[in-house]
């Protein structure tokens, strides 16, 4: 319950016009900070749904796969340059961003993450690693401006942001593959 309230407060804070404007003024902060934080608010808000409607989650998302697919679709949609651009140009898209990332990505992520098991988790991380390398390559190498609202230098920055994030994910995968927690815990 407390978590849900914190989540809502964070969502409210992120939606404040000065905060949203500041974060959206830098392309990489828009995509790599505002959006993950929106997902995180959903992650917190999810608590109340898990408490109130445990059965419907169990019924629809028993193995976590429907939820995680929904999460992936929403997240992939928001990594497209076009969708980011539209969020800045159209009020309705901006609202959709603030609704879809918490509700359709954050909540299913929380409910699914425990259910999909270690293999599922690692598969998702591998998927995102590949996606991020691809997106990084796209943004770094694109000779033209992909968004009306952001300059090419911002695009390149975002591209390197994707690549460095992918490197961190690889480090994590290597770490989980090559260390054996049962030796320590």
């Amino acid at each position: 319950m407390k978590q849900t309230i914190y989540g809502l407060l964070l969502l409210l804070f992120l939606a404040l016009p000065p905060v949203a404007n500041l974060m959206e003024s830098v392309m990489i902060i828009h995509m790599h900070m505002q959006m993950p934080m929106l997902i995180f608010t959903g992650f917190l808000i999810a608590r109340i749904f898990q408490l109130r409607f445990p059965h419907s989650f169990d019924k629809w998302n028993s193995n976590g796969i429907p939820g995680i697919i929904l999460f992936v679709i929403i997240v992939v949609y928001w990594t497209l340059p076009r969708s980011m651009d539209e969020a800045l140009n159209e009020q309705s898209m901006e609202i959709f961003k603030f609704v879809s990332l918490p509700l359709l990505a954050g909540i299913p992520l929380r409910d699914s993450w425990k259910r999909i098991g270690t293999v599922g988790k690692n598969l998702i991380i591998i998927l995102f690693t590949i996606l991020f390398i691809g997106m990084g390559w796209l943004y770094i190498d694109s000779p033209v401006q992909l968004c009306n609202n952001y300059l090419v230098i911002e695009q390149i920055t975002l591209g390197w942001g994707f690549v460095t994030t992918a490197i961190c994910l690889v480090i994590y995968l290597v770490y989980t593959t090559f260390t054996d927690p049962s030796k320590y815990e």
């Binding site: 830098v26 990489i28 902060i29 790599h32 900070m33 230098i153 390149i156 920055t157 390197w160 942001g161 460095t164 994030t165 490197i167 961190c168 480090i171 994590y172 770490y175």
Partner: peptide, 18 residues
């Protein structure tokens, strides 16, 4: 350590690219 590296990557990518 991975989270630390993520935070570092996020923070440094903007000015360093510039």
């Amino acid at each position: 350590i991975v989270i630390m590296l993520l935070v570092v990557a996020m923070a440094y990518v903007i000015p360093l690219t510039e």
